[in-house]
Design a protein around this nucleic acid. Structure first.
Length: 392
RNA sequence: GGGUCGGUACUCAAGUGGUCAACGAGGGCUGACUGUAAAUCAGCUGGCUUUACGCCUACGGGGGUUCGAGUCCCUCCCGGCCCA
């Protein structure tokens, strides 16, 4: 009987959607495992962005080679193109884009912010007009979930309003009330379906402490599979980021994933990890790659994951001097025959990449993207190891 | 040889008397990018300097007309086309 109970407990433990494997003794950093319909993911992790069902310039084979555990796609963009008809027909985004690992879909909430000129918010949802075609779309919380169900993402995001900065407290409060109300509607919609997709709520509240705390509490009360912190990096001074994390995270359930949306630079990611964040996404590595900015490790060689080297110390330093960025289009790289990096792009020189950018060869953006995602994913891998060995 | 059209900054190319150091495009140089309307966007791109509604030097060469010329006239040089 006791054995049976133990087996049952073990079984429950093994099937937990979210497991904390190790917590740092120095700060809030933690190593976790998230289970999704398409497999388990080790956190802290970074999600390369595949807004329209493709990480720009890369194939899924390349993403796998880079070690990407998950990608992020977007409800709004996929709704407009290719549309849900084909998505239903093909059986979801995984099949459509030939990606078999987890997918997280943003809900379109960020487009409320980024497409501010092309949308109108009402209490029931948001009217969008596609900037390209002018076609009109009305997204409600219920629809946002239905679309994400059709897409078949492993992690769905609640439909939120992401307010801009600066934002008056009055507006932030009203916006938050709407976001909370919508979060409940998203949850209701999710419960109608039997599928095992996870659903995350999104904390808002701009830069106001009481609103952030209130938001986190309300979402925790509704109950989600994970909690995101949104409304960050929308123009506010950077000092607010850590503050918001410190206000918010204590209010969120310990045993659920925490996701800092849209962040960020390597040092911001490390800071957030230390504050207890598990998940990240950002356009920086991919977009900046296309614009010629490369992330490179400083020091003689790139970090070896097995070494106890100085790289470990650098990563945990406050000065964030473990990396730098270079603009490969700069004239100084014309004759620089050193490798782009020492890992996945060793055979290609900086001078060659410089030349590819100068001549507008598409391969340039591909190589730059491969470099930057390699950097970001390696950074996350390094962070996980540092937590595991207790160095962070 | 005659006629004709043209020669503008790194390149192409606007400009037909003042507001032209000279539109625009490309190229070059440098930035910026944070849940992607982003292979995008911004600034600079004759020299000097106190970076300024400042001073020089500049629109094939030379010479005129004019208060003032990239713009009008003369001439020379060079190029395209047509006629001999």
């Amino acid at each position: 009987m006791i054995q049976l109970l133990m087996v049952k407990e073990l079984w429950l433990e093994l099937n937990k959607m979210f497991k904390v494997i190790k917590t740092s003794k120095k700060n809030q950093a933690r190593l976790c495992e998230i289970s999704t319909p398409h497999g388990k993911i080790r956190s802290p992790f970074f999600m390369p962005i595949a807004t329209r069902g493709a990480v720009k310039n890369l194939t899924v084979d390349e993403l796998n080679d880079l070690g990407s555990q998950i990608v992020l796609s977007n409800t709004y963009h996929l709704l407009i193109r290719p549309g849900m008809k084909i998505m239903k027909k093909v059986g979801g985004l995984h099949k459509f884009m030939n990606w078999s690992k987890p997918i997280l879909t943003d809900s379109g909430g960020f487009q409320v912010f980024s497409l501010a000129k092309h949308r109108k918010i009402t209490k029931n949802g948001v009217h969008f007009s596609d900037p390209q075609s002018g076609e009109k779309y009305f997204i409600t919380p219920k629809k946002a979930i239905q679309i994400q169900q059709t897409i078949g993402s492993d992690i769905m995001m609640a439909f939120d309003e992401c307010p801009k900065y600066p934002c008056t407290k009055k507006y932030a409060k009203e916006s938050l009330e709407l976001t909370t109300k919508w979060a409940q509607l998203c949850k209701d919609q999710k419960l109608k379906s039997k599928n095992k997709q996870l659903l995350f709520g999104i904390v808002q509240g701009s830069i106001y402490k009481d609103l952030r705390i209130e938001s986190a509490k309300q979402l925790a009360k509704i109950g989600f599979d994970g909690y995101a912190i949104g409304g960050i990096a929308v123009g506010e001074p950077r000092k607010y980021m850590e503050q918001i994390l410190k206000w918010t995270i204590p209010e969120l359930p310990q045993k659920k994933a925490r996701y800092l949306m849209g962040v960020g630079k390597p040092e911001e990611i490390i800071q957030a990890v230390k504050n207890g964040v598990d998940m990240f996404d950002c356009v920086i590595p991919t977009r900046e790659a296309r614009h010629g900015r490369l992330y490179v490790w400083t020091g003689r060689s790139e970090p070896q994951l097995t070494s106890e080297s100085k790289q470990r110390l650098r990563l945990t330093q406050r000065a964030w001097n473990f990396y730098k960025t270079i603009n490969i289009t700069n004239a100084k790289f014309v004759n620089d025959l050193t490798p782009i990096n020492q890992t996945n792009l060793k055979p290609y020189s900086k001078a060659y990449l410089h030349h590819l950018f100068r001549t507008n060869e598409p391969l340039g953006m591909r190589l730059a993207t491969l470099n930057n995602l390699n950097f970001y994913l390696m950074l996350m891998s390094k962070i996980r190891e540092l937590i595991r060995v207790g160095d962070i």
